[in-house]
Design a protein around this nucleic acid. Sequence first.
DNA 1: ACCGTCGCCATTTTT
DNA 2: TGGCGACGGT
Length: 740
Amino acid sequence: MIYGENMDILESLNESQKEAVLATEGPLLIFAGAGSGKTKVITHRIAHLIREKRVPPYKIFAVTFTNKAAGEMKKRISSIIGGSGDDVFVKTFHSASVYILRRFGEQIGIHPNYSIYDTSDQESIVKAILGEMNIDVQKYAKRVISKISEVKDKAELIEGADPYAFLPKEYAVNYAEIYDEYNKRLRAANALDFNDLLIYAVKLLRDSPEVIEALQNKWSYFMIDEYQDTNRAQYMMAKYLAAKSRNICVVGDDDQSIYSWRGADISNILNFEKDYPEAKVVKLETNYRSTSYILDAAYSVVKNNRTRKDKRLNSFRGEGFMPVYCETNNEYGEAEFVVNTIRRLKREENLQYGNFAVFYRTNAQSRLLEDTLRHEAVPYRIIGSVKFYERKEIKDIVSYLRFVVNPCDTASLDRIINNPPRGIGARTVEKLKETAYAEQMSEWEIIDKDINIDGKVNKGLKQFKEIINSLINLYVGVPDKISLADFVEKVITVSTYRKHLEESSKTDSTGKEHDRLENIDEFINSAIEYEERTDNPSLEEFLQEISLLTSEENPENKQAEAVTLMTIHNAKGLEFNTVFLTGLEEGTFPHANSLNSDAQIEEERRLAYVGITRAMDRLYIISADVRRQFHQTVYRQASRFISEIDNELLERTRYTSAGSSSYSDYSESYSPVSGSAKRVSGGAKFSSQYSRGDLVKHPKYGNGKIVNIENSGDDTTLTVSFPGSGMKVFIEKYTPLVRI
DNA sequence: ACCGTCGCCATTTTT
DNA sequence: TGGCGACGGT
């Protein structure tokens, strides 16, 4: 929809949506069911504040859960009211914290060049501590980290409660001691983890009259999205900020709370009316997204939860198609059923690949789906699996940058000191750490001052010192003398990282090393983009910003016309014409780890609810009798969520894959079973110099037979079956195939 | 002492 | 599948 300058902001809203938009003063709680136009209400409410109530845009503070949602919201506000929408403060809680700390952090000893530690940095710190304490690193590192996060999620540090009371007591592992040591090392490294960002921001708000006054004067209208997913610290941040104006509007849906494992506290939304007795409550109960069959199915699942406010969405749309439950023999059958159905619907119903989404509970499940789509030449994109900024090569470069900015950053130092290899081994690093500890200096000071750690001067360390020092000299000139992007380029060359990658890509036949080079160039692009869109760009800010980024938002989906694959968690807030919910088996979904607690089962059920309600027109729920996990084959029972759906709401079917348990078997004997999934190159609006059944030769795979020819976009693709290597798909115009 | 290779291991969800 | 530790070669 295009919004004209004079469009009435209220025009396209229903009664309760209008009510929510107009209630601008005082606390407001909006229960927004799935698909009820929540984002529309938030953006229109902000537009209304600005245009009708004459609230300056910069007085409005809005937080969402993900960067993507924040970006989306900004865009939509601007599309209603034009450019001034850019001045609304729209961020995530974490990036809002970064904003607060950048301005006021010095008050509590947080210098603006601090590093933000993600899970892998945390791991490196915790592993070091456990190693020194002679604790089984393998076994405990993950557990310790999750315990540390758990304590911090509860924000016990802020409220003065005893954090140790929340740590487990095990004779082999002293959690309290590790916890203290961990925090000590983060402070020494001038680093904050994700939780610290929130905690320290809240501390400032609570303890510094100057800060709270400045910020309460800065913002006077607050909007918080996904309120059911806020944790303790986020709750407190909102509370402190809005304490003066009390113009706080929270939006959420207890049925869609799926982040309790990350400290989200559902009682934050359920208790809002206690916190703000004068609060107005608006319920958005008309669903514009899904047909009533789908909504009824969703309701029949979620109503089994005990800890929820009962409510039921009305569909604005008609009855629609009955959801389909397909039982398959194994995960191959599941993947084939998905592909066949996509093909059929695309052809018969004139749908596009972009109309389809495939959801799964765990990322590991994506692999076979992905393989099958690729083999069948169905374009797809995966959201959120390997995050761009978590790729090894990106983290390496970021670590160089972080270290130059903040030379106390030991996690970064550990990463780069011998990367690329320069002859600094584990023993040397160990001695370096010992010396640093003995001298009460940072490791960098030891290196920089040529302090003797080993009876002889280490050549590698000397080399490393020169690299870092020359980069520090350049860094002083950023961004005036040297642009940020050029500096990043310098880091990549001076560190010899690029050279090293180029060399290893020569001998690498998989092309992986070459991909790494491309990713590095992509990273330079992201630095250029940052510089272009920022008024006062700084390396520090750039680094902190990307630490909070989770990729998809940046390297754009180059293929818009593609099937979307993602975890259900990632699907929140999205909608698709047709949704496949895969792996509906006890142990897969609900996940095995959640099976023995009611609270966790309820969260899994909410997750199912979120998944189902993403579908607009068609919903397919799939289970497999047998699924191979890790190394073994497990027999699975259909998920309880399926039996919770009323019988008359589900069309049942079964699909059996001709393939058995290994992919090569599958390729050899693959033949589509479903009658509607004939693999003909129908329509044939494209031309090919091959026909089905032709025998061809490939330089690497040898002789094979063409089993399918299809037009995907502009290209003609050939699917060839090789006796030795299974099925491969080629784009005809690039293929090295020769007819024999 | 470091570097590369081999084989073993484990995998919920993520700002 | 790939990340990580152990091991043996340089």
